[in-house]
Amino acid sequence: MWENVAEVREVAFHVTRFTPERDVKPRVQTFQVPVRAGMTVLEGLHYIKENLDSSLVWRYSCRMGVCGSCGMLLNGRPGLACNTQIFDIAGTDLTVGPLPNFDVVRDLIPDLVPMFSKHAGLRPHVVREDAADQDDPAGEYFQTPAQLEEFLQFTYCIKCACCMAACPTLATDAGYLGPMPLAQVQRYNVDTRDGGRGERLAAAGAAHGVFRCHYAGECSRVCPKGVDPAKAIQHLKRQLVLDYLHLARRQKPCAKQHGPGKGTRDPQIPASPPRTIGA
């Protein structure tokens, strides 16, 4: 699409602006940005802030698709500004807006607190009966590579909220838990170290829970990390149905293997080098 990397082309950035002290509702402001091949939307926004309007506000941190801060609506589709190249999605015009399905705090900044509240309410961490050992672990929990693969995909979630913005169910039901929190329910429920499955399933199977999803698939389509929340949600539904029919395989959280220095070492594994710190 863009053969000459040295060439610079003007792209009109139609940016949604909202200043709560002044504006009744958001307005759109257009900026002409010189764009070269490979330039990301985030770089375009920096150009605007440095050269055209220093009052433009957005949220970002890592610039490399890891922190999940710069989720925005780019030409009508949620995505990360830092890993979206302008010429991949725009020719001469690019619309940049805040993620929908959240309140707008200012310009391109959505209020993500409702999403994180739902997430926190579902206990998104390994729950063990031996809570004291979780704080001060004295051994390893046994888990096979196959058991790890059951949830590894869902651990790549960076909580950027793109899936929440794309979800059509969340657009009409503010109480719906949404793709990100539900995918994290599945991530911890299938973790063999975890013992909080029942509690999470009760919350996920409630009125605004997992059965409000009807597989529009947008969450998986827009996910910048390939987490596939839609897949997690369908597997979660299966768990709930099997539980209801008393067909689910029940297993206790895996046991701790041994404390440091108490296990038998495989003689094939060479000894570690002497410690250089804290020896």
Binding site: P20, P26, L99, P100, F102, D103, C167, P168, A171, T172
Partner: peptide, 11 residues
């Protein structure tokens, strides 16, 4: 704040 929920338009 501005309520940016899409509603039916989100469908």
């Amino acid at each position: 704040r501005h309520d940016n929920r899409l509603g039916i338009w989100g469908w």
